[in-house]
Design a binder for these strands. Sequence first.
DNA 1: CTTGATCCTCTAGTCGCTAGAGGATTTAGC
DNA 2: GCTAAATCCTCTAGCGACTAGAGGATCAAG
Lengths: 140, 140
Amino acid sequence: MRPATIGALAKATGVKVPTIRYYEEIGLMPEAERSAANRRLYGAAAFARLGFIRHARELGFDIEEIRGLIALSGDPEQPCAELDRIARDHLARIDSRLARLTRLRGEVARMVDACSHGRVGECRVLEVLSDHGECASEIH
Amino acid sequence: MRPATIGALAKATGVKVPTIRYYEEIGLMPEAERSAANRRLYGAAAFARLGFIRHARELGFDIEEIRGLIALSGDPEQPCAELDRIARDHLARIDSRLARLTRLRGEVARMVDACSHGRVGECRVLEVLSDHGECASEIH
DNA sequence: CTTGATCCTCTAGTCGCTAGAGGATTTAGC
DNA sequence: GCTAAATCCTCTAGCGACTAGAGGATCAAG
């Protein structure tokens, strides 16, 4: 397998070309080797790493967390407690976002139900929004 | 009730001072009157409007939607179909975010479970992240 | 009358990209 | 071999919704 262009890497991983360059710029991807004409060239390792990054991003890890995960993966002798901690922290964040979003859904649904389908003057959507006392749940 | 300073408005509504200035800059709040010494002064209407904005933001409406809601609220004779549409669209967005976040939670939880609490070399967290085939659900 | 809190404007930074300008090089079709 | 389209390069600027900080004016309390 000879080195691929950035376009081929993009196609294979589903990460856009400018995003790959951006990842290189912020040091998330290593600096790519270059062809004689200054084009970036990627080998199998780059495909694996970018795939990893993409998947982690899809799971909602932020760039700094991914940096941490990559650093840890480079040293297989380390105990995986830190890895576990990053993942658990992330899970906790997801859970709290889920809880918040669920409460929010309830409030918005209630608001939609309150619409009388008449004129704006009678519509309760605006009232619900204006008056925090209308909230069923305490969001703040 | 004589006019309040920006600080008092901030305290009362829970919106930070720079954010209020930002809202004025982008035209979400009207330009405040000024004291002789050029300080912003706010009356009851400003409290109501900023409270409305804050609440809508908390419910996840974006600035453009809020602009729309405010514009509609200015004309009580209009039918409230448009209002209803904005709110329903928003509800649909929340639902799809909820669905996505729920799938994601499942994957991350599975990943955390896969940690053998040994060394990084044996930990499946990294594998799960590397290999999209490991996914239980199709996210993309 | 001084001290500290609050206010003003302005610029720049956050995150994770995305878009576009302007130019070089490569690839595909004829 | 030649041309046209696609791809690549670098660079700067923009998105949303703020947040942070500099540098200076003004206000309220002791």
